[in-house]
Write a protein that binds this DNA or RNA. Structure first.
Lengths: 189, 189
DNA sequence: GATCTATTGTGAAACAATTCACAAAATACA
DNA sequence: TGTATTTTGTGAATTGTTTCACAATAGATC
Protein backbone atom coordinates (compact mmCIF):
# COMPACT_ATOMS: atom_id res chain seq x y z
CA UNK A 1 0.00 0.00 0.00
CA UNK A 2 3.05 2.23 -0.23
CA UNK A 3 3.25 2.94 3.47
CA UNK A 4 6.85 2.60 4.58
CA UNK A 5 6.59 3.60 8.23
CA UNK A 6 3.99 3.19 10.94
CA UNK A 7 3.88 4.61 14.44
CA UNK A 8 2.75 3.00 17.63
CA UNK A 9 -0.28 5.29 17.76
CA UNK A 10 -1.27 4.40 14.18
CA UNK A 11 -1.26 0.70 14.94
CA UNK A 12 -2.90 1.26 18.32
CA UNK A 13 -5.76 3.16 16.71
CA UNK A 14 -6.39 0.39 14.19
CA UNK A 15 -6.14 -2.33 16.81
CA UNK A 16 -8.17 -0.58 19.50
CA UNK A 17 -5.44 -0.54 22.14
CA UNK A 18 -3.08 2.11 23.56
CA UNK A 19 0.21 3.10 21.90
CA UNK A 20 2.08 2.07 25.06
CA UNK A 21 0.61 -1.39 24.73
CA UNK A 22 1.89 -1.68 21.18
CA UNK A 23 5.38 -0.52 22.16
CA UNK A 24 5.55 -2.76 25.23
CA UNK A 25 4.49 -5.79 23.21
CA UNK A 26 6.97 -5.08 20.44
CA UNK A 27 9.70 -4.49 23.01
CA UNK A 28 8.85 -7.84 24.65
CA UNK A 29 9.58 -9.60 21.37
CA UNK A 30 12.62 -7.55 20.50
CA UNK A 31 11.00 -5.54 17.72
CA UNK A 32 12.80 -2.22 17.47
CA UNK A 33 11.58 0.96 15.84
CA UNK A 34 13.36 4.23 15.25
CA UNK A 35 12.89 7.04 17.71
CA UNK A 36 11.09 9.66 15.75
CA UNK A 37 10.99 7.34 12.73
CA UNK A 38 8.44 4.80 13.90
CA UNK A 39 8.54 1.23 12.60
CA UNK A 40 9.43 0.20 9.05
CA UNK A 41 6.41 -1.69 7.72
CA UNK A 42 8.43 -4.11 5.67
CA UNK A 43 10.68 -5.40 8.42
CA UNK A 44 7.86 -5.15 10.98
CA UNK A 45 5.63 -7.45 8.96
CA UNK A 46 8.50 -9.91 8.53
CA UNK A 47 9.28 -9.95 12.24
CA UNK A 48 5.62 -10.43 13.17
CA UNK A 49 5.30 -13.23 10.67
CA UNK A 50 8.17 -15.03 12.32
CA UNK A 51 6.77 -14.48 15.84
CA UNK A 52 3.36 -15.81 14.80
CA UNK A 53 4.90 -18.65 12.80
CA UNK A 54 3.22 -17.28 9.70
CA UNK A 55 6.35 -18.22 7.80
CA UNK A 56 5.38 -21.88 8.17
CA UNK A 57 2.06 -23.53 7.50
CA UNK A 58 0.24 -25.78 9.95
CA UNK A 59 -1.78 -28.83 9.03
CA UNK A 60 -4.98 -29.08 11.03
CA UNK A 61 -7.86 -31.56 11.04
CA UNK A 62 -11.50 -30.97 11.95
CA UNK A 63 -13.32 -33.75 13.81
CA UNK A 64 -17.11 -33.58 13.80
CA UNK A 65 -18.84 -32.43 10.62
CA UNK A 66 -22.10 -31.09 11.95
CA UNK A 67 -23.10 -27.54 11.08
CA UNK A 68 -20.19 -25.96 12.90
CA UNK A 69 -17.58 -28.40 11.65
CA UNK A 70 -18.71 -27.84 8.08
CA UNK A 71 -18.57 -24.08 8.49
CA UNK A 72 -15.06 -24.31 9.93
CA UNK A 73 -13.84 -26.61 7.15
CA UNK A 74 -15.05 -24.09 4.56
CA UNK A 75 -13.78 -21.00 6.34
CA UNK A 76 -11.67 -19.28 3.69
CA UNK A 77 -9.87 -16.99 6.07
CA UNK A 78 -7.72 -19.76 7.55
CA UNK A 79 -5.66 -20.11 4.38
CA UNK A 80 -4.20 -16.61 4.60
CA UNK A 81 -3.02 -17.34 8.12
CA UNK A 82 -1.07 -20.49 7.40
CA UNK A 83 -3.83 -22.75 8.72
CA UNK A 84 -4.41 -25.71 6.37
CA UNK A 85 -7.46 -27.84 7.01
CA UNK A 86 -6.06 -31.02 5.48
CA UNK A 87 -8.91 -33.38 6.33
CA UNK A 88 -12.19 -33.65 8.19
CA UNK A 89 -13.66 -36.57 10.09
CA UNK A 90 -17.04 -37.82 11.27
CA UNK A 91 -18.43 -41.08 12.61
CA UNK A 92 -20.92 -40.95 9.73
CA UNK A 93 -19.05 -39.46 6.79
CA UNK A 94 -21.80 -40.22 4.26
CA UNK A 95 -24.37 -38.19 6.14
CA UNK A 96 -22.26 -35.12 5.63
CA UNK A 97 -20.85 -35.68 2.18
CA UNK A 98 -20.48 -32.12 1.03
CA UNK A 99 -20.32 -31.04 -2.56
CA UNK A 100 -17.08 -29.46 -3.77
CA UNK A 101 -15.41 -29.50 -0.39
CA UNK A 102 -12.72 -31.27 1.57
CA UNK A 103 -13.47 -34.97 1.83
CA UNK A 104 -15.04 -36.26 5.07
CA UNK A 105 -13.21 -39.34 6.31
CA UNK A 106 -14.51 -41.94 8.76
CA UNK A 107 -12.89 -41.93 12.20
CA UNK A 108 -11.05 -45.14 11.35
CA UNK A 109 -8.72 -43.22 9.06
CA UNK A 110 -7.72 -40.66 11.69
CA UNK A 111 -4.39 -42.36 12.41
CA UNK A 112 -3.38 -42.76 8.79
CA UNK A 113 -4.12 -39.15 7.92
CA UNK A 114 -2.74 -37.38 11.00
CA UNK A 115 0.45 -39.32 10.43
CA UNK A 116 0.64 -38.59 6.73
CA UNK A 117 0.20 -34.84 7.19
CA UNK A 118 2.10 -34.52 10.46
CA UNK A 119 -0.96 -33.09 12.19
CA UNK A 120 -0.33 -31.75 15.68
CA UNK A 121 -3.35 -29.47 16.04
CA UNK A 122 -7.01 -30.51 15.78
CA UNK A 123 -10.40 -28.84 15.99
CA UNK A 124 -13.08 -30.72 17.96
CA UNK A 125 -16.63 -29.92 16.86
CA UNK A 126 -18.37 -33.11 17.96
CA UNK A 127 -21.32 -33.39 20.34
CA UNK A 128 -20.66 -33.09 24.06
CA UNK A 129 -21.04 -36.83 24.62
CA UNK A 130 -18.14 -37.90 22.41
CA UNK A 131 -15.77 -34.97 22.92
CA UNK A 132 -13.56 -36.59 25.57
CA UNK A 133 -13.27 -39.83 23.63
CA UNK A 134 -12.28 -38.03 20.42
CA UNK A 135 -9.84 -35.95 22.42
CA UNK A 136 -8.18 -39.05 23.88
CA UNK A 137 -7.84 -40.59 20.43
CA UNK A 138 -6.26 -37.43 19.05
CA UNK A 139 -3.79 -37.17 21.90
CA UNK A 140 -2.82 -40.81 21.44
CA UNK A 141 -2.12 -40.13 17.77
CA UNK A 142 0.27 -37.31 18.63
CA UNK A 143 -1.97 -34.23 18.57
CA UNK A 144 -0.58 -31.63 20.98
CA UNK A 145 -3.03 -28.77 20.54
CA UNK A 146 -6.83 -28.78 20.51
CA UNK A 147 -9.38 -26.09 19.74
CA UNK A 148 -12.48 -27.35 21.52
CA UNK A 149 -15.90 -26.15 20.39
CA UNK A 150 -17.74 -28.63 22.61
CA UNK A 151 -18.91 -27.38 25.99
CA UNK A 152 -16.92 -29.87 28.07
CA UNK A 153 -13.72 -29.39 30.03
CA UNK A 154 -11.39 -31.84 28.32
CA UNK A 155 -8.98 -33.83 30.44
CA UNK A 156 -5.57 -33.88 28.76
CA UNK A 157 -1.94 -34.48 29.77
CA UNK A 158 -0.02 -31.31 30.69
CA UNK A 159 1.88 -31.40 27.41
CA UNK A 160 -1.34 -30.81 25.45
CA UNK A 161 -2.77 -27.33 24.95
CA UNK A 162 -6.54 -26.83 24.85
CA UNK A 163 -8.33 -23.68 23.77
CA UNK A 164 -12.05 -23.75 24.57
CA UNK A 165 -14.38 -21.76 22.37
CA UNK A 166 -17.92 -21.56 23.67
CA UNK A 167 -20.27 -19.78 21.30
CA UNK A 168 -23.13 -19.64 23.80
CA UNK A 169 -20.84 -17.91 26.30
CA UNK A 170 -19.78 -15.34 23.73
CA UNK A 171 -23.35 -14.37 23.02
CA UNK A 172 -24.47 -14.56 26.62
CA UNK A 173 -21.74 -12.18 27.72
CA UNK A 174 -23.03 -9.57 25.28
CA UNK A 175 -26.62 -10.10 26.39
CA UNK A 176 -25.52 -9.60 30.00
CA UNK A 177 -23.56 -6.43 29.25
CA UNK A 178 -26.48 -4.95 27.35
CA UNK A 179 -28.84 -5.74 30.19
CA UNK A 180 -26.49 -4.21 32.75
CA UNK A 181 -26.14 -1.03 30.69
CA UNK A 182 -29.89 -0.70 30.46
CA UNK A 183 -30.27 -1.25 34.20
CA UNK A 184 -27.70 1.44 34.92
CA UNK A 185 -29.39 3.84 32.54
CA UNK A 186 -32.79 3.35 34.12
CA UNK A 187 -31.36 4.48 37.46
CA UNK A 188 -31.26 8.05 36.09
CA UNK A 189 -34.97 8.13 35.26
CA UNK B 1 -29.47 -35.54 40.20
CA UNK B 2 -30.22 -35.75 43.89
CA UNK B 3 -27.21 -33.68 44.96
CA UNK B 4 -28.32 -31.16 47.57
CA UNK B 5 -24.99 -29.54 48.43
CA UNK B 6 -21.85 -28.67 46.55
CA UNK B 7 -18.52 -27.35 47.79
CA UNK B 8 -16.27 -24.73 46.29
CA UNK B 9 -13.66 -27.38 45.49
CA UNK B 10 -16.23 -29.60 43.75
CA UNK B 11 -17.28 -26.80 41.45
CA UNK B 12 -13.69 -25.67 40.99
CA UNK B 13 -12.64 -29.15 39.86
CA UNK B 14 -15.43 -29.33 37.30
CA UNK B 15 -14.78 -25.84 36.02
CA UNK B 16 -11.00 -26.07 35.95
CA UNK B 17 -10.35 -23.20 38.37
CA UNK B 18 -9.29 -22.91 42.01
CA UNK B 19 -11.74 -23.13 44.93
CA UNK B 20 -10.73 -19.62 46.04
CA UNK B 21 -11.76 -18.32 42.66
CA UNK B 22 -15.19 -19.88 43.01
CA UNK B 23 -15.68 -18.44 46.49
CA UNK B 24 -14.44 -14.98 45.54
CA UNK B 25 -16.74 -14.89 42.53
CA UNK B 26 -19.75 -16.04 44.55
CA UNK B 27 -18.91 -13.54 47.26
CA UNK B 28 -18.72 -10.76 44.65
CA UNK B 29 -22.32 -11.48 43.67
CA UNK B 30 -23.59 -11.98 47.19
CA UNK B 31 -24.01 -15.75 46.95
CA UNK B 32 -23.66 -17.20 50.43
CA UNK B 33 -22.91 -20.79 51.36
CA UNK B 34 -22.78 -22.43 54.75
CA UNK B 35 -19.46 -22.77 56.49
CA UNK B 36 -18.88 -26.48 56.62
CA UNK B 37 -22.14 -27.04 54.71
CA UNK B 38 -21.11 -25.81 51.26
CA UNK B 39 -23.69 -24.38 48.88
CA UNK B 40 -27.26 -25.65 48.46
CA UNK B 41 -27.56 -26.67 44.81
CA UNK B 42 -31.16 -25.62 44.49
CA UNK B 43 -30.78 -22.03 45.66
CA UNK B 44 -27.35 -21.76 44.02
CA UNK B 45 -28.77 -22.62 40.60
CA UNK B 46 -31.57 -20.10 41.09
CA UNK B 47 -29.18 -17.34 42.08
CA UNK B 48 -26.87 -18.04 39.16
CA UNK B 49 -29.81 -18.07 36.77
CA UNK B 50 -30.78 -14.60 37.95
CA UNK B 51 -27.21 -13.29 37.70
CA UNK B 52 -26.87 -14.63 34.15
CA UNK B 53 -30.36 -13.47 33.18
CA UNK B 54 -31.26 -17.08 32.41
CA UNK B 55 -34.68 -16.37 33.89
CA UNK B 56 -35.46 -14.28 30.79
CA UNK B 57 -34.98 -15.11 27.14
CA UNK B 58 -33.21 -12.90 24.63
CA UNK B 59 -34.18 -12.47 21.01
CA UNK B 60 -31.18 -12.37 18.73
CA UNK B 61 -30.75 -12.05 14.96
CA UNK B 62 -27.99 -13.38 12.73
CA UNK B 63 -26.86 -11.20 9.83
CA UNK B 64 -24.89 -12.94 7.11
CA UNK B 65 -25.89 -16.48 6.12
CA UNK B 66 -22.66 -17.83 4.74
CA UNK B 67 -21.29 -21.06 6.18
CA UNK B 68 -20.72 -19.63 9.64
CA UNK B 69 -24.04 -17.78 9.82
CA UNK B 70 -25.89 -20.93 8.84
CA UNK B 71 -24.04 -22.97 11.44
CA UNK B 72 -24.84 -20.40 14.13
CA UNK B 73 -28.52 -20.25 13.19
CA UNK B 74 -28.75 -24.02 13.55
CA UNK B 75 -26.75 -24.25 16.75
CA UNK B 76 -29.07 -26.15 19.08
CA UNK B 77 -27.23 -25.28 22.24
CA UNK B 78 -28.40 -21.65 22.27
CA UNK B 79 -31.97 -22.61 23.15
CA UNK B 80 -31.06 -24.02 26.55
CA UNK B 81 -29.33 -20.77 27.43
CA UNK B 82 -32.20 -18.43 26.76
CA UNK B 83 -30.79 -17.35 23.41
CA UNK B 84 -33.50 -17.28 20.71
CA UNK B 85 -32.39 -16.82 17.14
CA UNK B 86 -35.61 -15.22 15.90
CA UNK B 87 -34.53 -14.41 12.36
CA UNK B 88 -31.60 -14.46 9.97
CA UNK B 89 -30.68 -12.00 7.23
CA UNK B 90 -28.63 -11.91 4.06
CA UNK B 91 -28.33 -9.57 1.09
CA UNK B 92 -29.14 -12.55 -1.10
CA UNK B 93 -31.66 -14.63 0.86
CA UNK B 94 -32.47 -16.96 -2.04
CA UNK B 95 -28.90 -18.11 -2.39
CA UNK B 96 -29.02 -19.45 1.11
CA UNK B 97 -32.57 -20.73 1.33
CA UNK B 98 -32.13 -23.60 3.71
CA UNK B 99 -34.45 -26.51 4.04
CA UNK B 100 -36.31 -26.92 7.34
CA UNK B 101 -34.58 -24.01 9.05
CA UNK B 102 -35.22 -20.49 10.21
CA UNK B 103 -36.25 -18.30 7.28
CA UNK B 104 -33.60 -16.06 5.73
CA UNK B 105 -34.92 -12.53 5.26
CA UNK B 106 -33.55 -9.85 2.93
CA UNK B 107 -31.79 -6.93 4.61
CA UNK B 108 -34.75 -4.68 3.79
CA UNK B 109 -36.80 -6.38 6.45
CA UNK B 110 -34.26 -5.85 9.24
CA UNK B 111 -36.13 -2.90 10.73
CA UNK B 112 -39.51 -4.58 10.73
CA UNK B 113 -38.26 -7.72 12.40
CA UNK B 114 -35.90 -6.24 14.98
CA UNK B 115 -38.78 -4.01 16.05
CA UNK B 116 -41.31 -6.82 16.17
CA UNK B 117 -39.13 -9.06 18.33
CA UNK B 118 -37.53 -6.32 20.41
CA UNK B 119 -34.07 -7.40 19.28
CA UNK B 120 -31.20 -5.68 21.10
CA UNK B 121 -28.42 -8.18 20.36
CA UNK B 122 -27.20 -9.26 16.91
CA UNK B 123 -24.61 -11.62 15.49
CA UNK B 124 -22.59 -10.31 12.54
CA UNK B 125 -21.26 -13.04 10.24
CA UNK B 126 -20.91 -11.07 7.01
CA UNK B 127 -17.75 -10.60 4.93
CA UNK B 128 -15.19 -8.07 6.12
CA UNK B 129 -16.19 -5.53 3.50
CA UNK B 130 -19.78 -5.06 4.65
CA UNK B 131 -19.34 -5.55 8.42
CA UNK B 132 -19.17 -1.86 9.38
CA UNK B 133 -22.17 -0.98 7.23
CA UNK B 134 -24.29 -3.77 8.71
CA UNK B 135 -23.15 -2.73 12.17
CA UNK B 136 -24.23 0.89 11.58
CA UNK B 137 -27.65 -0.26 10.38
CA UNK B 138 -28.12 -2.47 13.41
CA UNK B 139 -27.13 0.28 15.83
CA UNK B 140 -29.53 2.69 14.13
CA UNK B 141 -32.32 0.18 14.60
CA UNK B 142 -31.72 -0.03 18.33
CA UNK B 143 -29.30 -2.95 18.63
CA UNK B 144 -27.08 -2.42 21.69
CA UNK B 145 -24.93 -5.56 21.66
CA UNK B 146 -23.02 -7.20 18.80
CA UNK B 147 -21.15 -10.46 18.53
CA UNK B 148 -18.79 -9.84 15.65
CA UNK B 149 -17.38 -12.78 13.71
CA UNK B 150 -15.85 -10.58 11.03
CA UNK B 151 -12.19 -9.65 11.41
CA UNK B 152 -12.72 -5.88 11.57
CA UNK B 153 -12.68 -3.54 14.54
CA UNK B 154 -16.20 -2.13 14.47
CA UNK B 155 -16.70 1.53 15.25
CA UNK B 156 -19.72 1.92 17.55
CA UNK B 157 -21.05 4.51 20.01
CA UNK B 158 -19.99 3.93 23.63
CA UNK B 159 -23.43 2.67 24.55
CA UNK B 160 -23.01 -0.36 22.26
CA UNK B 161 -21.15 -3.48 23.39
CA UNK B 162 -19.09 -5.46 20.87
CA UNK B 163 -17.64 -8.91 21.43
CA UNK B 164 -15.18 -9.93 18.73
CA UNK B 165 -14.78 -13.62 17.97
CA UNK B 166 -11.94 -14.41 15.62
CA UNK B 167 -11.74 -18.09 14.70
CA UNK B 168 -8.36 -17.77 13.01
CA UNK B 169 -6.93 -16.25 16.18
CA UNK B 170 -8.29 -19.08 18.31
CA UNK B 171 -6.59 -21.69 16.16
CA UNK B 172 -3.42 -19.69 15.71
CA UNK B 173 -2.96 -19.30 19.45
CA UNK B 174 -3.01 -23.09 19.84
CA UNK B 175 -0.58 -23.57 16.96
CA UNK B 176 1.78 -21.06 18.60
CA UNK B 177 1.57 -22.70 22.01
CA UNK B 178 2.27 -26.11 20.54
CA UNK B 179 5.26 -24.79 18.64
CA UNK B 180 6.63 -23.04 21.75
CA UNK B 181 6.27 -26.23 23.80
CA UNK B 182 8.15 -28.22 21.18
CA UNK B 183 10.90 -25.59 21.04
CA UNK B 184 11.29 -25.70 24.83
CA UNK B 185 11.38 -29.47 24.84
CA UNK B 186 14.09 -29.66 22.20
CA UNK B 187 16.35 -27.57 24.45
CA UNK B 188 16.75 -30.61 26.69
CA UNK B 189 18.02 -32.82 23.91
C1' DG C 1 -24.84 -30.99 74.42
C1' DA C 2 -19.68 -30.60 74.07
C1' DT C 3 -16.05 -31.17 71.09
C1' DC C 4 -14.01 -31.81 66.77
C1' DT C 5 -13.64 -30.94 61.84
C1' DA C 6 -14.51 -29.23 57.25
C1' DT C 7 -15.64 -25.39 54.75
C1' DT C 8 -16.75 -20.68 53.96
C1' DG C 9 -15.66 -15.70 53.56
C1' DT C 10 -12.43 -12.35 53.19
C1' DG C 11 -8.57 -9.26 54.41
C1' DA C 12 -3.63 -9.25 53.19
C1' DA C 13 0.07 -10.62 50.19
C1' DA C 14 1.80 -11.80 45.89
C1' DC C 15 1.65 -11.53 41.24
C1' DA C 16 0.40 -9.65 36.65
C1' DA C 17 -0.94 -6.15 33.42
C1' DT C 18 -1.53 -1.43 32.13
C1' DT C 19 -0.60 3.30 32.20
C1' DC C 20 2.36 7.15 33.17
C1' DA C 21 6.15 9.93 32.39
C1' DC C 22 10.27 11.12 30.60
C1' DA C 23 15.14 10.51 28.89
C1' DA C 24 17.26 9.08 24.56
C1' DA C 25 17.54 9.18 19.85
C1' DA C 26 16.33 9.92 15.01
C1' DT C 27 14.51 12.96 11.71
C1' DA C 28 13.08 17.56 9.94
C1' DC C 29 14.15 22.00 9.03
C1' DA C 30 16.49 26.30 9.12
C1' DT D 1 25.63 21.86 10.82
C1' DG D 2 22.72 23.03 14.79
C1' DT D 3 18.35 23.24 16.91
C1' DA D 4 13.65 21.88 17.44
C1' DT D 5 10.43 18.28 17.32
C1' DT D 6 8.58 13.77 17.29
C1' DT D 7 8.49 9.20 18.64
C1' DT D 8 10.53 5.27 20.80
C1' DG D 9 11.84 2.43 24.85
C1' DT D 10 11.35 1.49 29.41
C1' DG D 11 11.67 2.10 34.53
C1' DA D 12 8.25 3.46 38.06
C1' DA D 13 3.60 3.94 39.59
C1' DT D 14 -0.83 2.37 39.35
C1' DT D 15 -4.41 -0.65 38.83
C1' DG D 16 -6.33 -5.21 38.59
C1' DT D 17 -6.41 -10.20 39.59
C1' DT D 18 -5.19 -14.39 41.88
C1' DT D 19 -3.51 -16.84 45.68
C1' DC D 20 -2.66 -17.31 50.58
C1' DA D 21 -3.91 -17.86 55.13
C1' DC D 22 -6.79 -18.01 58.80
C1' DA D 23 -10.80 -16.60 61.88
C1' DA D 24 -15.62 -17.70 62.00
C1' DT D 25 -18.92 -21.09 62.06
C1' DA D 26 -22.14 -24.83 60.58
C1' DG D 27 -22.38 -29.49 60.74
C1' DA D 28 -20.69 -34.14 62.25
C1' DT D 29 -19.55 -37.16 65.95
C1' DC D 30 -19.68 -39.08 70.31
Amino acid sequence: MGVTRVYSYTLAGKAGVTPEQVRKDFSEYGIKGNRRGGYLTESLVREIEVIFSRDRESNVVVVGMGNLGQALSRYERFAGRGINIVATFDIDPYKHKSRSDIHVYPMERLEEITERFGVTVAIIAVPEISAQEVCDDLVNLGVRGIVNFSPVLLKVPQYVVVNNVNLSDEIESVILSVRRMKDEQSLFL
